[in-house]
Design a protein around this nucleic acid. Structure first.
Ligand code: SF4
Ligand code: SF4
Lengths: 140, 140
DNA sequence: CATATATAAGACTAATTTAGTCTTATTAAG
DNA sequence: CTTAATAAGACTAAATTAGTCTTATATATG
């Protein structure tokens, strides 16, 4: 509960790696998959999604891979989550939706404030924040 | 993803109701279940859990029910989530755990900061915040 | 040109988590 | 004694998340 999905984590891992390697021409899915022990097919799908919305740019064929296509400072966690998982909210009614309590719910408006506070946190964290900070492990 | 569970929402609905009815002796699971269209068995289990940790006090037998046993101002969302769902964290490694990326992960420490920020939001929201604020629907 | 190494796309399956049900026992008011 | 409650826990169903597999296409390089 209240967990980020693996898709989002894997995307962050890959995006940070690409950002830190911006000197090199491009990074392949295979390379990232090996380095961080992420299932290749899964990572591929994630990178394809990011490529489709032009967060990263794909280079096809042998020696291909992906290049970061955004300014990390301008790209928030909220945007990433939206791309990979759709609209973000801590309860169903924050988005659409068919909650059977909707008409009688006594917590909808207070919980909406909680929701806004959490979205606000994520809005204010950019890929640069994820990328710049020292990390443990490989530190790449 | 990043959703509150129904258990937590149902608990908040019930706790708010009890808080707003503190004049009455007690509120039964059936009564709350009917008012807010929450499955009775599910709500019962939730209230039993809250009763076991003495957030609410059970009154057995006919005319029984539950009475709020805490000061809403002193009871945070984090505590509630801990009781109903266990330790709170946006990623697996924030708690224990067996993440296969752990040794090479390049985002662990930055993501920990995000985690702390979100937990902080939840720490600072009390049942009083949920209860006091005007709501839509039944407004009970 | 052939081959090896990439991305692209999407169907499919497995695993895990969340939500909800059902059953049986106990308690106390009337 | 009957009725309306809580207590406890096994069980099932639904939904979400994670991961696999397959086939097609693109391109660098020998
Ligand atoms: S806040 Fe109320 S209406 Fe919204 S999803 Fe939760 S229970 Fe349903
Ligand atoms: S932050 Fe890294 S180590 Fe922690 S759960 Fe996510 S992938 Fe695993």
């Amino acid at each position: 509960m209240l967990k980020l999905t693996r898709k989002v984590e894997y995307a962050l891992i890959a995006l940070r790696y690409m950002d830190r390697n911006k000197d090199r021409r491009c990074a392949s899915a295979k390379e990232i998959s090996d380095l961080y022990h992420i299932p290749l097919s899964l990572l591929s799908k994630i990178l394809q999604t990011l490529s489709k919305v032009e967060i990263i740019q794909a280079v096809q064929g042998a020696h291909g891979g992906y290049i970061l296509n955004i300014n990390p400072e301008d790209f928030s966690m909220t945007e990433l989550i939206n791309i990979l998982e759709g609209p973000l909210g801590i309860m169903d009614c924050s988005i659409d939706s068919e909650c059977s309590q909707l008409d009688t719910c006594n917590i909808k408006s207070p919980i909406t404030k909680v929701n806004n506070a959490i979205i606000n946190v994520l809005n204010n964290i950019t890929l640069a924040d994820i990328s710049e900070q020292q990390s443990t492990g490989l530190k790449i």
